[in-house]
Amino acid sequence: MDYLYDGSFDGLLTCIYHHYYQEPASGIFQLEYYQPTLMVSSSVVLTDPDLANRVYQAIEQKISADALARIYHVYLSSSSDKENLVLNYLRLGFKMGSKADLCHSHPDVYPVHKLDRQVTLETHRLLGLLRFKDTGKFLYGVMSPDHHILTLIADHFADRLAGERWIIHDQKRRLAIIYDGQERNNDKLLIQHKWYMTDFSYSMDDYTTREEHHWQQLWQLYFQQISIESRYNPRLQSHFVPYRYRRHLLEFKGASWGHS
C-alpha cells in the first residue's frame, strides 16, 4: 500500500503511524507528485495531529531526540525520495533504538545522515550568505536555497536583529518569514514578537534607497580591497560560495566580480 500525504510534517508522521497500526507501507509519497501504478494500491492519508504527536513522542523516547531532529531536516530537504528514506530509517530505529545511529554505513542510515548534513550545511551557510537591505521601513533579505531552510534560520536572526523589523524571502518557494520587532518602554522589553511564515511572491529586488546605495557601495569596495591580488584563487572561492548562491549576493553583482 502506498500512502499519500499532504506534504506537511504531521502528515508524514501520520503515515508512519498507519504503517505500524494499519497496513505496512510500500512507500510514502506526496499526493501532488504521485504517479499511480498498476501494481500497488494507494490510499490518501488524512493528517491527524494527535496520531502525529504520538509518533513524534515515540521517536523521541524510543530512538532519540537527535533522530527526531534528523528526520525533520530530511523532511525539509529537497530530495524526491525523502519520505521513504525517513520510513526506512525509522523502521530500523524502532528496532535498534538509539544504536541505529551508530551504523553510519548502513544503507538505511547513511542517506539520512547525508541529507541531514546537507541541510545543516546549507542552514549554516545562509546564516552568513544572506544579505539584508534597508528599505527605510524594514530590512529585506532574499535567498533561493536548495532546501527549505527558512524556518531553521529564523530564530538566529530573531535573536540577532531583535530590535529591527525584517523579512526573509525564499524566492524559490515563494515564502517569507516576517519579524515585527519588539516593543520597548523605558528600555524594558514589553513584548517579544515571534516571527511567522507566510506566502510571499512580491519582489523587492529593484527598490534601493539612496542611503542604502551608499552602504552597498562601501561593502562592494571593502570586498574588493580585502582580497590579496597575488593570492588570487577563484577556484577556492567558488568552493565556498557556489555560483548558485551568487545571484542574491551584493558583492557579486555588476562590476564587482573578482578582481577589478
Binding site: 552568513g128 574588493q224 577563484p234 568552493h239 565556498f240
Partner: peptide, 20 residues
C-alpha cells in the same frame, strides 16, 4: 537587548577573490 549575538562555531559571511 541590543543588536547582535555570537555563536561558538563562528560564521563566515563572504569569501573574497583570493578564497579567504
Amino acid at each position: 537587548g541590543g543588536t547582535g549575538n555570537t555563536r561558538s562555531f563562528g560564521i563566515c559571511h563572504a569569501w573574497s577573490a583570493d578564497g579567504r
